[in-house]
Design a protein around this nucleic acid. Structure first.
Length: 330
DNA sequence: TTTCATGATTTCAT
DNA sequence: ATGAAATCATGAAA
């Protein structure tokens, strides 16, 4: 009786074998899963060791964060390590569950093989299905881990979000250059490099700073007048002490007055003196040496870079230079 | 909490 | 590619 039943089941089996084979086709390697894997690897999440030894941190800054702020990055790394920990423990849990379930099903099938025919192919098929289900769960885990890492990165590594004010030293170096080259505040590439080096910032930060400074000075030169005086004074003292030492460059200044065979400091000093005088002397007619007007004391190139938005500054250059001369003579 | 200052980014023009 | 202008986002002071 038992053997008869077994043979009947074998017959049925033979008929259904086709359908099993149909499902057996391995689906092609998932592109998205590969992407997730490579990202997790790049972020240092996939690696089981806890210490990424900087690889995780540096690999995580593709374009941003010019100055590697290790303090912030350590925060990032700590949180990343937490994510990694969760990821691995979850992964381990799933794998263990998968193993247990597979064993359980295999045993079950083996037991059943006593009463019905169970081919090894069928076993493999079942195991394949189980693995498929679990890998779907793993894939979800990978996806959410990736999302968590992305969020963390945008929160902690995005340069804009992590804006820090420059050091006093950097601000001073930049301001000194700006105010002593008010006539043409466009540092050359080499100058930018030197300023960056002196201030401990990057060249692109220097460029950003000058871009911001020019536009804000133009808009707000009144408020910045005091600052101009201050920095010009510093520069003048510095240059007097330094003598004709290390002026870095003389850019393509169209004005022969502020550039030439001599260091620019002379121009800067002059500007300073006039500026200081102007500042100390109350304007008799009101229109005298107003912030943008103070600017007009500079050589022509100076007013040109901000003429567009300060028409009064450019309104009477001749007059300004006149007052410049008379001021000097006084 | 609000306001201002400031570094970074984006968009557009050259 | 570089700079102007506008804007964003954050730090710090009020």
């Amino acid at each position: 009786m038992k053997s008869a039943l077994f043979s009947v089941l074998c017959e049925i089996k033979g008929k259904t074998a086709m359908s099993i084979r149909q499902h057996q086709e391995e689906d092609p390697p998932d592109a998205q899963l590969l992407r997730l894997d490579s990202m997790l690897l790049a972020e240092g999440v996939s690696r089981p060791e806890k210490r990424g030894r900087g690889a995780a941190g540096t690999a995580a800054t593709p374009g941003g964060c010019p100055n590697d702020n290790s303090i912030e990055h350590s925060d990032y790394r700590a949180k990343l390590s937490h994510i990694r920990q969760i990821y691995h423990s979850e992964l381990e849990k799933y794998e263990q569950a998968c193993r247990e379930f597979t064993t359980h099903v295999t045993n079950l099938l083996r037991e059943q093989s006593r009463v019905r025919p169970v081919s090894s192919r069928e076993m493999e098929h079942m195991v394949g299905i189980i693995h498929g289900k679990f890998s779907a769960i793993q894939r979800q885990l990978k996806q959410s881990t990736c999302e968590a890492v992305m969020t963390l990165r945008s929160r902690l590594l995005d340069a804009r979000r992590k804006r820090r004010n420059f050091s006093k030293q950097a601000t001073q170096v930049l301001n000194e250059y700006f105010y002593s080259h008010l006539s043409n505040p466009y540092p050359s590439e080499e100058t930018k490099e030197e300023l960056a080096r002196k201030g401990g910032i990057t060249v692109s930060q220097v460029s950003n700073w000058f871009g911001n400074k020019r536009i804000r000075y133009k808009k707000n030169s009144g408020k910045l007048q005091e600052e101009a005086t201050m920095y010009s004074e510093k520069t003048s003292v510095a240059t007097k002490v330094r003598g004709s030492g290390g002026q870095t460059s003389c850019q393509s200044t169209p004005s022969p007055g502020s550039c030439g065979p001599f260091p620019l400091t002379s121009g800067g000093d002059m500007v300073l003196t006039l500026r200081t005088l102007a500042f100390l002397q109350p304007p008799p007619g009101g229109a005298f040496l107003q912030p943008p007007g103070g600017v007009c004391l500079q050589p022509p190139a100076h007013s040109s870079w901000q003429r567009a938005t300060t028409p009064q500054a450019a309104s009477s250059p001749a007059e300004d230079s006149g007052s410049f001369n008379s001021d000097v003579s006084n």
